Simulated scan of single mutants.
Amino acid sequence: MATNETSGTDRQPIVELSGVGKSYGNIRALHGVDLTVSPGEVTCVLGDNGAGKSTLIKIISGLHQHTEGEFRIDGEPVRLGTPRDALARGIATVYQDLATVPLMPVWRNFFLGSEMTRGRWPLRRLDIARMKETADQELRNMGIVLDDLEQPIGSLSGGQRQSVAIARAVYFGARVLILDEPTAALGVKQSGVVLKYIAAARDRGLGVIFITHNPHHAYMVGDHFTVLRLGTLELSAARSEVSLEELTNHMAGGAELAALKHELAQVRGVDTDVLPEPSELPSASAPAP
């Protein structure tokens, strides 16, 4: 097991992207993106559908290689060939489907693909007692207390399943944790559970990349915000440099909305004076009041 706790003075970036882009033939999916992920910080990557978030995830997690710019890990330029290469360097990705088996117990899912064994071949067998004990301890270390690790993981709430996946990545040595829209399909309460454990992962010294289209969720836990629009960098700002209103306005496309309001002013029967200014418009992903 790896220990991920990082001292407050050790803030050397783990992952750095400088002018990174990705083209698929003549189609440029991503261009000129800068991103820095440091230990003990949550970097939020926001953007609407088609903004380039998925392409960015695939580059950092080793699924795809970048075609422009430079990708560095611990200051060393890299070109990851597979997700296994990323895992070997401490970069773990938790996707929306969580890669779990719903009917298997929680402890089995915690060690899925990396089971503990005891004895020598051909009498080697699963070390069930040690896996249960370890899973329980690691979950508690993240503040996750489950009454019964034998229950199928599919019986847990969405927020609890996300939390187990986060704790699993921490245990297996992740230094950078990429979370792909972890709150997208969750209600308000369960989203709060996930955000709590994102903060817990940060407090244990991990660098967290939180992919989301919800600026409200991002602002609750984020230390730095990167907004993508149509494959390019719309905004890169520290928490102290941007308000929630400004972040929401960038997500909502303030410039496009201002242009739309101007166009609507030319249409007979539309009173644009009663329409809110772009900065007053909520993001399409903002929760309903």
Rank of each mutant, 00 (worst) to 15 (best):
L233A: 02
H224T: 10
T226Q: 09
A258M: 13
G192P: 12
M251F: 06
A259S: 13
K196F: 00
G231K: 13
G254I: 07
A218K: 11
V208T: 09
R202M: 03
F210P: 06
G254P: 12
K261V: 08
T272K: 00
L233M: 12
R229K: 15
L228W: 05
L275N: 02
I198L: 01
D203Y: 05
A199Q: 11
L275M: 10
N249Y: 12
N214D: 10
A255L: 08
V193K: 14
P276R: 00
S240C: 02
S240R: 14
V194W: 07
E256C: 05
Q266T: 14
H216A: 10
D203M: 04
L206Y: 04
L257T: 07
E263M: 07
H217D: 13
V194Q: 08
A200N: 07
G207V: 08
F210C: 00
L230H: 14
L264F: 04
H216R: 15
S243P: 13
V270R: 04
A199G: 05
R204K: 15
D273P: 05
H216C: 04
V274N: 05
H213S: 11
N249A: 14
S243M: 05
A237I: 06
R268Y: 02
I209H: 09
A237L: 01
L247Q: 10
L230W: 12
P215G: 04
L260F: 11
L195M: 06
E263A: 09
H262V: 13
V270S: 01
N214W: 03
K261M: 00
A265V: 02
N214A: 03
T272F: 00
V227W: 10
E234L: 13
G205K: 08
G207S: 06
L230V: 14
L275C: 01
S236I: 08
Y219Q: 03
G222S: 04
A255C: 03
D273Y: 06
R239C: 03
D273A: 11
P276E: 00
L275R: 02
R268F: 00
V193E: 07
A218N: 09
E263L: 10
V193L: 06
A201E: 06
I211V: 14
S240D: 09
V274C: 09
V242Y: 11
N249M: 12
G231W: 10
M220N: 07
K261H: 03
L195E: 02
R204P: 08
N249F: 04
N249R: 15
G192E: 04
F210R: 06
F225K: 13
V208L: 01
T226P: 05
K261A: 00
R268N: 11
G222L: 02
R229C: 06
A200Y: 01
G254N: 12
D203T: 13
E241S: 07
D273G: 14
L275E: 01
V221M: 05
A258V: 10
D223E: 01
A265G: 08
S243T: 15
E241L: 03
M220W: 02
R202F: 03
I209M: 11
A199H: 10
T248N: 05
Y197E: 08
G222K: 09
R268H: 11
V267A: 00
Y197F: 14
A265T: 01
T212I: 05
E234F: 07
V227D: 05
S236N: 14
L228V: 09
V208I: 11
